[in-house]
Write a protein that binds this DNA or RNA. Sequence first.
DNA 1: CTAGGGTTAG
Length: 618
Amino acid sequence: MEQRLISLLQSSPRLDQLKQIHALISRTCPNLTPIFLKLLLNQPATIRYARQVFFTVPSPDSLISNSVLSAHSKLSLHREALEIFHHWHRRGAQITSFSIPSVLKACASLAALDAGKQVHSIVLQLGFFSNVFIHTALVDYYVKNNDVCSAQKAFDEIVDKDPVPYNCLIFGYSKSSDVVQARHLFDTMPQRTASSWNTIIACYAHQGDFNEALTLFERMLEEGFQPNEITIVVLLSICAKVSDLETGLKVKKLIDGHHSRSSLIVRTAIIEMYVKCGAVDEARLEFNQMDRRDVVAWSAMIAGYAQNGRSNEALELFKKMQSECCEPNEVTLVSVLSACSQLGSTDVAERIGTYVESLGFTSSVYVNSALLDMYAKCGNIQKARRIFDEMSQRDIISWNSMIGGLAYNGFAEDAVSLYHEMIQESLKPNDITFVGLLTACTHAGLVDLGLKFFHSMRSEHHTVPKIEHCACIVDLFCRSGRVDDAYRFILEMEMKPNVVIWGTLLSACRIHSNIELAKISVARLLELEPENSSNYVLFSNLCAEAGQWEEARSMRKLMKSKDVQKLAAYSWIELNGRLNKFLVGDRSHVRCDEIYDTVDELNLQLKGVHEFYLEESI
DNA sequence: CTAGGGTTAG
């Protein structure tokens, strides 16, 4: 009978068949009910029915009750687990020490604070003092509720501690950023497991102390611990954050033997490691080799393309994801939007924007900020503003995107007044806020206001200006023709000027024909990036325009001697969703004659407009 | 029949 029952249940019966089997058992051999129930618990498909059967059992013993409870807990059916426990508790059934951990796990996952406290008091009433399992579950419960104090108290109750409660509490201290306590527990625990190492390594990684994390990993290997999947994932994510491809590959080697079996998460972490090290093509190879991909894997790869400036490939992959019926989540959409914002195409922005808006992530601050950022960067400032105004919640990044968006689109005054609104709402500006503000001032020629904002960073907002803020100030002086002030500012800067700063000055020197400063800037630029052709070309053109032919020729010579290749620059225009690229003297387009005629005509018209304004001003 | 650590983002 029992064998037949097993084979019947394994043939994935329908609900009506299950009912028949159940009826048969209750009529002919009720003593088989517990076995029947246990078999139902084994499969997620039949656990619902198991619950119904359990509720009909007149007085279930604690063994079967605990099995029902733990089966639900294992499948993360926490709500149902709590329901079972309440039902059972009401009937006055005997609660054993085995019942408690599953219930506490359910309370922790549901963030059911009151229920958890009740269970704790039941624990005290029933006198389960110093039971390792129960108190470990209590430590875990309090850690998950961010109450590390109560967790420590529950921990202290345990007389004979194995590594598990230590690991739980170390994680608790890690979550509350108390590295000292975490490390103390780790150092003093009598014996460790691989999980102990994983927890402490992850703790340092969360703190941003990647060196200590890597040192501990080496010690872990030295002491003969076998890294598991979680160790690998933690390490790969560290390598991703510090862009350390060399260590990343070493870690990857550790699992290369049984690579085919490695989990989705490990493979996603490998993709992420490659992506953050700039090795996008290697990431794609890894991605292609996956036999199964979830939304996280797709998102990681799409984000990888987006972050490495390969927007078209990001969008192509998103299309493929949709064709394989994988539903995008917020993270996917944010990456897709970020790819679009780099393309700068109004058509694509319109299409993807409308699509994203139709999906109903209306309350997501993340998605909305990415949306408004994209609209702004693609020139649709009205839509960007509409999204911003309609947002029910905004964080610093939403404000920054809007301020920056207004700034880049030339609405300097709106950017500045939005900043004041932000201050009114008592939000703290960060360094990105100031990049937006300074950009606004640059575009509008508001030199004094820009300098005021720059100085207020330190004095009022306790943020230290970074090199990008200094670059904004240099640009601010340069655009208003004050190249000498720009140079003076560079000399007084606390940090070493970079290529952006010297490049800005050099370009300004060409416009304002300042050969002396141009010489200084180009010298710095050739030190910093001898391979960049535009510096040589810019300087030599500048000299030629000023009539200094000898200087111009020698710079061309220098460029040639260093074998610097000049990159062909092209301009492009998007028409009816198609991208058309043009090189200098390009005749490849089928209608190039018409195109050149039109360009000539436009030039004439522009000259006419220019002359008209000249006459007007006289 | 009981417990812990991990991946994607503006």
